[in-house]
Amino acid sequence: MNTSRYLPWLANSLFLAGLTVGALGLHPENQDTGAAAAGFFIAIAALPAVIAWLLGRNQRVTDAQLSTAHRVGYQQALEHVARGLLDQPTAPPNPGERLPGEQAAGNVIQLRPSTDDRSERKAL
């Protein structure tokens, strides 16, 4: 059984019925009947179905939306190529001045100099 056809109608009608009963229960003449609590409980119980329906509806993509997204992405890529935004700069940036004694740039720059005279630690 496909519930996607019945879920929007069931979720929305249950949610609106719960809100209606809850609002009618707030009237001063109906406050002792507990209709407000029952109506709001029904409305809150219908919220997961409403959320599931809205998530399912928002995740469906039509062929027209998909082709529009591809076309817009392709046009943006062509615009970037035309403006030269995808080209790499010809000269690397200037690294700046180093202080005397600093390590030359390489793959690894040590933040703390290593010491070879490490004594073995023992627990007390």
Rank of each mutant, 00 (worst) to 15 (best):
H27A: 14
I51F: 13
Q88K: 12
A38N: 00
E79F: 08
A49E: 05
W9A: 13
Q88I: 05
Q110N: 14
A11G: 02
Q103S: 03
D116C: 08
P113F: 09
Y6M: 08
H80V: 00
A123E: 12
F15Y: 13
V61F: 14
R60P: 01
T33R: 08
H70F: 14
G84R: 01
R118G: 08
A82M: 10
W53S: 09
D117M: 11
N2Y: 01
H27I: 10
L19C: 00
D63Q: 13
V81M: 15
R112N: 15
L124R: 07
P8K: 00
L26N: 09
G84I: 03
L16E: 00
R98K: 09
R5Y: 06
E29P: 00
E120I: 13
L86P: 04
T115M: 11
P95K: 06
G18W: 02
P100T: 06
N94F: 15
I44M: 11
V108W: 11
E29A: 13
A77L: 14
L10G: 06
L99P: 05
Q110T: 15
L14K: 05
E29G: 04
N107D: 15
A123Q: 09
E102C: 03
H70T: 11
N107I: 09
T68W: 04
K122L: 11
N107M: 13
T3G: 07
S114F: 14
R5C: 07
A52E: 11
F15W: 10
A82G: 10
E29W: 10
A37Q: 07
F41T: 13
Q110L: 15
L47W: 12
A36W: 01
R71L: 11
